[in-house]
C-alpha cells in the first residue's frame, strides 16, 4: 500500500545528503522523520504560524508547505546548521543571554528568519525586524526579547562590542 520511496540529493546545513522518503512528504516531515533533525518544529502544518521555518536557498520558507521532492539539488539550512562547531551563532548566543527563548518551541524558526534578515540587512531597525518576523508567532515572549536579541546579534555581527542593556534585563527604574 505505501508508495515506493523517492530519493533526492540536496545540500543540508552545508553538507550533501541523500534521503529516501514517501513522495508526498513535506520537507518538514523529511527533516524530522527521515533525517532525524527534530530541531525544526511544527505548530499547524498549514502555513499559519511560521514554527516550521527553514532556509531554502537562503530564504526563510514554511517547511510544512514545501514538498520534499521539490528540494532536489537545493540548499536547506535548519537550526542544526546555525552553530559553528561548538560555538553558538551570535543569534543563538543573544537569544540565550536575553531569554528570547522561553519554551523554546518557536525559537528555531525565529533564529532562521532572523538569520536570513541579517544576511540581507546587517543593520535592521526595529520596524524592519518586526516586519521580517511578522510571519512567526510566539506565545511566550511578547517578541520584545526577540527583537532585542536580534539587535544585539546584529551589532556583534557588525563587529561591535555590544551588551544587553540594563532596562532589557532588569526593567526601567
Amino acid at each position: 500500500m505505501p508508495d515506493p520511496k523517492a530519493k533526492i540529493a540536496f545540500e543540508l546545513n552545508g553538507e550533501p545528503v541523500e534521503v529516501a522518503f514517501a513522495p508526498h512528504k513535506t520537507l518538514l516531515e523529511v527533516l524530522r522523520e527521515d533525517l532525524a533533525l527534530t530541531g525544526t518544529k511544527h505548530g499547524c502544518e498549514l502555513g499559519e504560524c511560521g514554527t516550521c521555518t527553514v532556509l531554502l536557498d537562503g530564504a526563510p520558507v514554511l517547511s510544512c508547505l514545501v514538498l520534499g521532492l521539490a528540494c532536489e539539488g537545493r540548499r536547506v539550512k535548519t537550526v542544526e546548521g546555525l552553530a559553528q562547531g561548538s560555538r553558538l551563532h551570535p543569534l543563538q548566543e543573544a537569544f540565550a543571554a536575553l531569554g528570547a527563548a522561553q519554551c523554546g518551541y518557536c525559537t528555531p524558526a525565529f533564529l532562521l528568519t532572523a538569520d536570513a534578515l541579517l544576511t540581507d540587512n546587517p543593520s535592521p531597525g526595529r520596524d524592519e525586524i518586526k516586519q521580517a518576523l511578522s510571519g512567526n508567532l510566539c506565545r511566550c515572549t511578547g517578541y520584545i526579547k526577540i527583537y532585542e536579541a536580534v539587535e544585539l546579534a546584529a551589532a556583534r555581527l557588525r563587529g561591535e562590542r555590544a551588551e544587553p542593556t540594563r532596562e532589557s534585563l532588569y526593567g526601567s527604574r
Binding site: G39, V79, L82, A83, L88, F95, A96, A97, G99, A101
Partner: peptide, 10 residues
C-alpha cells in the same frame, strides 16, 4: 537559563 543553550540549538 540553564536550558537556554539546548533550546537555541534546537
Amino acid at each position: 537559563k540553564v536550558d537556554a543553550t539546548a533550546k537555541v540549538l534546537g
